[in-house]
Design a protein around this nucleic acid. Structure first.
Length: 568
DNA sequence: GCCGTTTTCGGCCCGACTGTTTTCAGTCG
C-alpha cells in the first residue's frame, strides 16, 4: 500500500511550492494528498488495473497528478519533487514546523539571511539579527526561540483517552463561570479522533469580553498565547494548547458544526451552501443578510438538505452524500454496550480483585461481563496455569451467586504461541465461555508467519475473537507485520469476530479497519482490556472508534443480548 | 493544478488574532 508515501510526497511538494511563492498549486497538491491518504483502495492497484484514467476518478486528481502517481509507482520517485528539494534545503522546510513561521516568512529568512537550518535560525535569533528584516521585530525573535523549544520537545499528538477527560473537566469549570450559558468540547476531540494536537472548546455567552477574561484566569492555564473578544488561546499546565471560542447563544448549532470540523467536512458544507446560494460560517447559514439556520446542528444540516451527521462521521469520506440521500447508517450509540468482554483481575496482572471488577460492572449497568485473565505462557503478566484457571472459575461461580443481576462469563485471554498453537489445550478452551486469542510474543515475526498465527487462531473452533488485532501502541510501537486482508478473509470464513480495544494507547482495530469489517459484515466486539476498576470507563473511546468506522449496533456483538451470539 | 446547475477560464472556504504596521500581511485552524 503506497497511499501514505505518495500523499507524503505531495504534502511536501505543497510546502516547497509554498516557500517558492507559487500560488494555488500547493492547494491542489494538498487536496490530492488528503484524498489519496484517506482512499481505502491501494492507488497502486487502481493504477495497475486502469492506469492514469482510473486515478483521475479520484477527487482532486487530474492529468498532472495522475502522471506523478504513475511515475512514483513505476520509478519510486517523482522528478518534480526531487527538483524542488534541490532548490530548497531540508532545513528550510523544517522551519515551517515552528508556530508562527509560514511559507512567506521562511522564504524571506532563507533568501535574505541565508538561513537553511534550525541551528542557524536559533543562532541568528539569539544574535538579534532577525529583527533587522522588515516585518520582523523583537517579538518575532522571541516567538521563534520559543517555537524552537516546542519543536525540540516534540510535537507528538496526545492520546484521546488522556486528553478528552481533561478537556471535559475544563469545560465543566467553564460552565460554572458567570455569564456562560453553554459550553462544549469541539474539534477532533468531539470527533473522537484517536489522537489530538490540541483542545477546542466553545462557550456560548452574551458577554464574551467578560468570559474571555475569566477563562484566562482558570487555574489550569499556564500561559495565555492569544486573547481577543471572541477567541482565547492558552497553554495548559499539562503542556497542551486549548482554543476557547466565544459565541452568542443563538449560534449554538452553527458554532458547533463549524468548530467540530473536520476541516474537510466543513469545506464541503461551505461549498454546498455556496451552490445553494448561501454562505456558511460559525455565524450561521446565511442567505443575503438573513440567517437561515444557526440554533441547532440539526437545523443547519436540514437547511442544507442533509440529515444531521454524527460528529464522528464528519470527515468528508462519503457521509455527506449519504446524508443527502437520507441514508446515513444508524451508528452504535454510547449507551448500547451490554457487557465488557475483555478484563483482567489480580489473578494475572490486574490491579483489582474479581469482586471489585464485577461490582463496578454492575454499577455500569452491564447485562453480562467476562473475566479474561492471561494464559500461562504470559509469565510476565502472571498468566494462569490450568490449575489456577479451574480455581478462578470456582471463584467466579461463587460471585455469580452474589451478583445475580449480571451474567458472569468465564474467559481467558489466551496467547497465540509463536508456533501458531493456542496456549491451552482444546480441552481447557472448551470449558471457557469466552476465548480471546491474542499475540503477546514474537512481535518481530515476518508478515507471512504472523498472518498464519492469526489465521490459525481464527480457525480454532473455541476462539471467540481476536484481541487488539494489529498490536500497535500509539506513539510507541508499530502494528505487527500482518496481512489484514487475509485475516479478515479468515474471519469471514469462520464467522469469528475482531476486537475494538478501547484502551487509550491501543484503539485497535482502528476506525479504518473497523470500516473494512463493517463493509465485509465481520462481527466486532468493543472491550476495555481493563486492568483496574477505573479502566472500565475506557469503553467510550472504543465506541468512538466504532462510530468513526460507521459500525451499527448490529455490527457489534456486545451491543446485543448474549443469547443472540454466544454459542453454548 | 483542478474543476464546472452562474464559468473550458477564472476562480479556488472563512474568519480571528498578532506584530509590525499606520491600514494590513501572514499565520492559524
Amino acid at each position: 500500500m503506497k497511499n501514505k508515501e505518495i500523499a507524503a510526497i505531495f504534502y511536501e511538494m505543497a510546502d516547497l511550492l509554498d516557500i517558492l511563492g507559487v500560488e494555488w498549486k500547493p492547494l491542489a497538491f494538498r487536496k490530492a494528498a488528503r484524498v489519496i491518504e484517506s482512499e481505502p483502495e491501494d492507488v497502486e492497484k487502481i493504477f495497475r488495473k486502469s492506469g492514469e484514467k482510473g486515478l483521475k476518478e479520484l477527487e482532486g486528481v487530474g492529468d498532472a497528478i495522475a502522471k506523478k502517481i504513475g511515475e512514483f509507482i513505476e520509478t519510486g520517485k517523482v522528478k518534480e519533487h526531487e527538483e524542488l528539494k534541490k532548490q530548497i534545503p531540508d532545513g528550510v522546510e523544517s522551519m515551517l514546523k515552528i508556530p508562527g513561521l509560514g511559507p512567506k516568512k521562511v522564504a524571506r529568512l532563507f533568501k535574505e539571511l541565508k538561513i537553511d537550518s534550525l541551528e542557524k535560525l536559533e543562532k541568528l535569533a539569539k544574535a538579534e539579527k532577525i529583527r533587522k528584516l522588515s516585518g520582523f521585530g523583537e517579538k518575532s525573535e522571541e516567538d521563534i526561540l520559543m517555537g524552537l523549544e516546542l519543536v525540540k520537545k516534540g510535537t507528538e499528538r496526545k492520546l484521546l483517552g488522556i486528553i478528552l477527560p481533561y478537556a471535559e473537566e475544563i469545560v465543566n469549570e467553564i460552565r460554572k463561570l458567570p455569564h456562560v450559558e453553554r459550553a462544549e468540547v469541539a474539534g477532533s476531540l468531539r470527533r473522537m479522533r484517536e489522537t489530538v494536537k490540541d483542545m477546542d472548546m466553545l462557550v456560548f455567552t452574551r458577554t464574551p469580553g467578560v468570559v474571555s477574561k475569566a477563562v484566562q484566569k482558570l487555574s489550569e492555564v499556564e500561559k495565555v498565547e492569544r486573547a481577543g473578544d471572541t477567541l482565547v488561546s492558552v497553554r495548559l499546565k499539562n503542556g497542551i494548547s486549548a482554543d476557547v471560542r466565544m459565541l452568542a447563544p443563538d449560534l449554538y448549532g452553527s458554532g458547533l458544526v463549524h468548530f467540530t470540523g473536520s476541516k474537510e467536512h466543513g469545506i464541503a458544507l461551505r461549498n454546498r451552501a455556496i451552490k445553494m446560494g448561501m454562505k456558511f460560517s460559525e455565524y450561521g447559514l446565511v442567505k443575503g443578510k438573513k440567517i437561515v439556520a444557526s440554533k441547532s446542528e440539526k437545523d443547519v444540516y436540514a437547511a442544507l438538505g442533509l440529515q444531521e451527521v454524527p460528529p464522528e462521521m464528519r470527515e468528508n469520506e462519503g457521509e455527506i452524500e449519504l446524508a443527502e440521500k437520507k441514508k446515513l447508517p444508524e451508528i452504535v450509540g454510547y449507551d448500547d454496550i451490554r457487557g465488557d468482554l475483555h478484563t483482567h483481575t489480580v489473578w494475572s496482572d490486574g490491579a483489582h480483585t474479581t469482586e471489585q471488577m464485577v461490582s463496578r460492572a454492575v454499577e455500569l449497568g452491564y447485562e453480562y461481563y467476562a473475566i479474561t485473565d492471561h494464559s500461562k505462557s504470559d509469565v510476565v503478566a502472571n498468566g494462569l496455569n490450568e490449575k489456577r484457571v479451574k480455581e478462578h472459575m470456582m471463584e467466579i461461580d461463587k460471585l455469580q451467586k452474589k451478583f445475580p443481576q449480571i451474567t458472569l462469563l468465564k474467559g481467558s485471554e489466551v496467547a497465540i504461541l509463536t508456533n501458531g498453537e493456542m496456549d491451552y489445550s482444546n480441552k481447557v478452551l472448551k470449558e471457557l465461555d469466552i476465548v480471546i486469542a491474542s499475540i503477546h510474543s514474537g512481535f518481530k515475526n515476518d508478515e507471512k508467519k504472523m498472518t498464519a498465527r492469526m489465521v490459525g487462531a481464527l480457525e480454532n473452533e473455541h476462539v471467540t475473537f481476536i484481541a487488539h488485532p494489529t498490536g500497535r501502541l500509539i506513539n510507541q510501537r508499530n502494528p505487527y507485520a500482518l496481512n489484514t486482508e487475509k485475516i479478515m478473509d479468515a474471519a469471514q470464513r469462520t464467522g469469528k469476530a475482531f476486537e475494538i480495544n478501547a484502551f487509550p494507547s491501543r484503539l485497535d482495530f482502528d476506525a479504518k479497519n473497523v470500516h473494512s469489517c463493517v463493509e465485509r459484515k465481520i462481527p466486532l466486539v468493543i472491550n476495555t482490556d481493563a486492568h483496574s476498576v477505573q479502566n472500565l470507563d475506557f469503553m467510550k473511546f472504543g465506541i468512538g472508534q466504532a462510530r468513526r468506522g460507521w459500525a451499527t449496533k448490529k455490527d457489534i456483538l456486545n451491543a446485543q443480548p448474549l443469547q443472540k451470539w454466544l454459542k453454548k
